[in-house]
């Protein structure tokens, strides 16, 4: 298992894919911090709800985080490296487990960097506009750590999802549709159901105060459940299905 982890680590660092994803995640999250920091009036900016949403990982950050995991498996199918990978490690479960572990680690790393930058930039924006940081230290930590945990879990979820779909283009499109359309629709139509979906669970973890969301800890449990379910399904599929 250590062998597969080292192998996965080389894969992660040896292409520009993850550098691109990190740039994308930082860029999107900072963009949202700036938009939310400058596009609202002073009163709204001072509210805790607004500031929490502004600093949390959000939809775009979560989406990029999920791509970490999706790319780790789908790019192997796309470029055919899945064949040497499985020839070298025919116990495919080990490969997927190593991918989940490295994706969790990379997601955590991405999350920490992104959140540090988001808070730095956000604090600067508040200072420029003369607004107070309305969040307690505890709340700041919850949002930052919660967002980082969401990034890690989304990355892990991406591995299972990617293993299930295999095709990179389909997986990315599927993710976009899910993030941008499906969850929003369900959430607006039936929040009682919608809050049990992965993105809503992630939002709950980042400490966003919204009546319809679960508590942070319940959100974490739900999201971990999704990670486990997708991993189990993806692994089952990978063990059963031929590699051509």
């Amino acid at each position: 298992m250590v062998a597969q982890l080292r192998s996965e680590f080389v894969k992660l660092r040896s292409t520009r894919t993850n550098l691109g994803l990190l740039a994308g995640m930082i860029g999107l999250v900072l963009f949202i911090v700036l938009v939310m920091g400058f596009a609202v009036d002073q009163t709204e900016l001072a509210t805790r709800e607004h500031q929490t949403a502004m600093f949390s990982l959000g939809l775009a950050g979560g989406f990029i985080a999920a791509l970490i995991g999706v790319m780790s498996i789908c790019s192997e199918f796309r470029h055919g490296t899945i064949r040497p990978t499985f020839v070298f490690t025919p116990k495919r479960g080990r490969v997927l487990t190593a991918k989940v572990v490295t994706s969790l680690a990379l997601g955590t790393f991405f999350g920490l960097i992104t959140e540090a930058l988001a808070f730095g930039t956000g604090a600067a924006v508040l200072a420029i506009r003369g607004a107070e940081l309305g969040l307690s230290t505890e709340k700041v930590l919850l949002t930052a750590l919660g967002s980082t945990a969401v990034a890690a879990l989304m990355a892990a979820l991406g591995v299972g999802f990617g293993a299930l779909v295999r095709n990179q283009v389909l997986a990315v499109i599927g993710l976009i549709v899910w993030f941008m359309v499906v969850e929003n629709t369900i959430m607006s139509l039936a929040p009682d159901v919608g809050r049990f979906f992965p993105l809503a669970a992630g939002d709950a973890m980042t400490g966003i105060d919204a009546e319809e969301l679960l508590s942070a800890s319940a959100g974490a449990l739900v999201l971990i459940g999704y990670v486990a379910a997708f991993f189990a399904a993806g692994t089952l599929m990978t063990l059963r299905k031929d590699v051509r």
Partner: peptide
């Protein structure tokens, strides 16, 4: 084993 001459990530 050598299966396909294309089993590489082009960016690696």
């Amino acid at each position: 084993a050598v299966l396909e001459a294309t089993d590489f990530h082009p960016g690696r």
